[in-house]
Simulated assay, not measured.
Amino acid sequence: MSHHLLTPFAAASAPECQALLPGLKLPNLQALLARLAEQPADRGDDHQLTPPHERALARALGLPVADGQIPWAAAQSEAPTVPQAWFSLCHYQVGMEQVTLLPGAQLVLDDADSHALFEAFEPLCAEDGLTLRRESATEWHASGEPLRGIACASLDRVSGRMVDAWLAESPANPAGARLLKRLQSEAQMLFYTHPAHDARTARGLLPVNGFWVHGAGALAAPPALAEAPDMPDTLRQAALRGDWAGWQQAWQALDAGEIAALLAAAQRGEPVTLTLCGERHARTWTTAPAGAFARLGRSIKHLFGTTPVSDTLKDL
């Protein structure tokens, strides 16, 4: 049995997170990395549309990987060759010189408000050749030819950040990109004048005033998806909230839980894989070969000492 643990936001680029790394005590992670052999890393930068954990997950599943063009919506549908995308409802927080996106998870949006907004917005999409359906209160599914070739930033990239830096161009389909920007503008005006806006404001809730497009694309053929790795979400949730004390606590729990279990499996001789993802890079370690040369390499590694966990996490 093979075990693969994929960890999003094992580190983040925020200065508050970087300041915590030297004091982070993760003994099970340190012991596990000492037993495993590192594979070639997926190196990128903070400005790529697709974050490292989504690139790593797509590769593990066997999906095509291109920046801003991992077809998440199509991969989960019954007609994956049709261009599709997720429209995630959000709140655009407007400041003096910036617009920041707060995702639907922070909106406390119920089905009644979501359904009312959907009924108002769906005809506009239909006029432009897009079929829209509700998957949940905050996640709507769009499909149609205008989405083919669209590049868009992951919701994890833009959440809590200024949106201007993440409005991607789509050279393969500039007309489709213009259509989506127009629909986003129309949604802002429509949602602002909708009765749900004032009703939510009166209840002290953030109004829905837009949506974010992500996970767009189509597949050439129905995918034969591989088994998904285990992917704990606690570090990611804390990082997206900017809750760095919570992020530190989540790492302690992860080290005592999933990491300890992976270490125990490696000690039993079972094949294991660990992928740590930051906001730039994804680094992967797997069970080291059992041959004499590999044992010699591990002996040399132990002789000179292993890299501190903090240094490993800084290089994510």
Rank of each mutant, 00 (worst) to 15 (best):
A218W: 12
A218H: 12
A220D: 15
A221C: 11
A221P: 10
P223S: 11
P223H: 06
P223V: 11
P223F: 10
P223D: 06
A224M: 11
L225D: 12
L225C: 03
A226N: 15
A226V: 07
A226M: 13
E227G: 10
E227P: 11
E227F: 09
E227V: 14
A228H: 08
A228C: 06
P229N: 08
P229C: 03
P229E: 05
D230W: 07
D230H: 10
M231D: 02
M231V: 02
P232F: 01
P232T: 02
T234W: 04
T234L: 06
T234K: 01
L235F: 02
L235W: 01
R236F: 00
R236Q: 05
Q237Y: 03
Q237T: 05
A238E: 04
A238V: 04
A238T: 00
A238M: 01
A239E: 02
A239N: 00
L240C: 00
R241W: 01
R241F: 00
G242C: 04
G242H: 02
G242F: 10
G242V: 07
W244Q: 03
A245H: 14
A245V: 13
A245L: 13
G246K: 03
G246A: 07
W247F: 11
W247V: 03
Q248A: 14
Q248M: 05
Q249W: 07
A250T: 03
W251T: 08
W251M: 14
A253T: 15
